[in-house]
């Protein structure tokens, strides 16, 4: 059991509990059984430190997204351009997905392309 498997189990169990809205012991057991029985994708093991870093970034991204939204409302952002961002080394597909998610979640930036060579193409809006 590496960090990835545990993270997957917790994610599945959370969705199950939210969906059924029943926190009884029996329902918890059923949810755990389903989470274990669903096919696991075999991915490279991830360091728990990376997951913690990304989770912290997700929590920070929510207020940041609202701040950017209010900035966009107060000052018109009419300039558009593309920039390239390099992907950090040794990222697993799951972490790359989360990186793209975080960049796209904030309203000023959207990833338009991910290249296997190791960069994202990011579209930005800027004030004049």
């Amino acid at each position: 059991m590496d960090a990835n498997t545990i993270f997957n189990l917790i994610l599945r169990l959370t969705i199950w509990l939210l969906l059924t809205n029943n926190f009884g012991l029996l329902n918890l057991a059923i949810g755990l059984a389903i989470a274990l029985l669903l096919p696991q994708s075999r991915t490279a093991p991830v360091k728990i430190k990376d997951w913690l870093q990304v989770s912290w970034k997700i929590i920070k991204a929510i207020p940041q997204a609202y701040i950017e939204a209010i900035q966009m409302m107060l000052r018109p952002h009419n300039q558009e351009d593309f920039v390239r961002e390099t992907v950090k080394a040794e990222r697993t597909p799951g972490l790359i997905f989360l990186d793209i998610f975080l960049i796209t979640f904030t309203p000023k930036t959207i990833v338009t392309k991910y290249d296997k060579q190791g960069w994202y193409e990011v579209h930005r809006v800027k004030p004049k």
Partner: peptide, 16 residues
Amino acid sequence: RSVLFKLHSLSVADTL
């Protein structure tokens, strides 16, 4: 405007 520019403002509206 371009599709991408509209996407930026839509992510303000529809997500946030």
